[in-house]
């Protein structure tokens, strides 16, 4: 029986500095598919890891849509579907419609930004293979993890493990999917 291919190989460090050094070394060693896990964002790692997202454009387009919908809804209702003389004001009282147009612009924008953020964070995903690591709970307070994923071209369970050991981690785990 062959062992199933693991998710990756993870190493735990006890401070951010060690993690940053490990990342730089992993990159120098030619690894490309790896991810770090830390209790707080680390600026240096962001510089190394290149993450792609479309949060801002999505938010912008959505906000624009919200604005158009917001104004059109008011125009449609006030001037088209239910035209009424209210206080002698014109049907298309666009000056008065500005506020709601703005509100809907913001509302659509912020919902899109929130949704896009969570989406690009890969959430919600209540399970993650790393959760199998017993000490991974520390990743939310003072644990720093580097995981080289198995689909990296250089990934070899033994080599990678050895490489990780060379970074003086606290521990190294093989991470299974299940």
């Amino acid at each position: 029986m062959t062992r199933p291919r693991p998710y990756g190989m993870a190493a735990e460090f006890d401070d951010a500095g060690a993690l940053v050094r490990a990342v730089r070394k992993a990159r120098a060693a030619g690894y490309r598919r790896f991810e770090t896990y830390s209790p707080h964002p680390i600026e240096e790692i962001d510089q190394v890891m290149q993450h792609w997202d479309m949060i801002a454009p999505i938010g912008f387009v959505s906000a624009l849509t919200g604005g158009v919908i917001g104004f059109y809804m008011q125009y449609f209702i006030a001037a088209d579907v239910y035209p009424t003389n209210i206080g002698g004001r014109p049907l298309n009282s666009w000056q008065a419609f500005v506020v709601i147009t703005f509100a809907l612009t913001v509302l659509f924008g912020l919902i899109a930004v929130f949704g896009a953020t969570v989406f690009f964070q890969g959430m919600p995903s209540l399970y993650h293979p790393l959760f199998k690591i017993p000490s991974f709970r520390r990743a939310s307070s003072n644990g720093y993890f580097l995981c080289i994923e198995s689909w990296d071209e250089q990934f070899q369970p033994i080599d990678t493990s050895r490489f990780l050991q060379s970074l003086y981690p606290i521990n190294v785990w093989e991470v299974d999917y299940e």
Binding site: Y82, T84, N85, I86, G87, G88, R89
Partner: peptide, 20 residues
């Protein structure tokens, strides 16, 4: 029965409007 009725403008639900 103001032509530019201040009451009508502020009603949120069009409960007071002007007739033709």
């Amino acid at each position: 029965h103001c032509e530019n009725a201040p009451c009508e403008v502020v009603c949120p639900v069009q409960a007071t409007v002007h007739s033709s």
